[in-house]
Amino acid sequence: MSAVAVTQSKANRALRFYGLTNGKKVIVAVTGVALFGFVVGHLIGNLQVFLGPEVMNAYGATLHSNPALLWSARIILLAAVILHITASVQLAIRAKAARPEGYRKWNRVKSSYASRTMIWSGPIIGAFVVYHLLHFTLGNAMGWQGRQFATQTVDGHVIPAPYENVVAGFQNPIVSGAYIFAMALLMLHLRHGLWSMFQTVGLNHSRLSPRLQRFASVFSLILFIGYISIPIAVMLGIVR
């Protein structure tokens, strides 16, 4: 190893890092952590629907009361989503090129369904998120459903009224069904992703590994139950 060390510029180094499959994987893992944080936070917010319209709508208003914070969170999340998707897609393309001719037969030995379908569960969840935003943030989708997008006025600003929109939205079984389906995929995605993040950044060894995998399974299940409890409650009429 007699190569001469030459200092690279920071930007150059970042690019080279990203140029390696291992670098891209780290990006996927780190952005995955950010998105996972959002998924947890979002659930905590959403569950307030069980506390009634005042609490829920006040929570919505709180989020909107600080546009700077809201927009920085949105921008960070958007950047994470873009990086997460871009890196994953580039890796998938590369992987396809790494095996130009496929097997006539291939049988899994160990891997889980969730782990092998990340590249499919991901985009479907992505597509759902777009729809979800149109539905509850921008409101356009409400119209498709033949409903009015409910709003509230706080300090003179017109902002969405989450409680009414959630109830109205989920009363439609198709909307609820699609939501539950997307959450099931999200559970699958996290079941592997949550553990995989640790592995990718190097936090794994023989004793930790089974615990991390158990944690990933349990935690993704908890998130799944938490999320689908809302449409189910609406459909059952518990939340009206």
Binding site: K25, L91, R99, S111, S115, W195
Partner: peptide
């Protein structure tokens, strides 16, 4: 490993 055109690891364990 990257130069040799191997793919990335998705930690699936096969």
């Amino acid at each position: 490993m990257n130069i040799e055109n191997f793919g990335h690891c998705t930690n699936i364990g096969e």
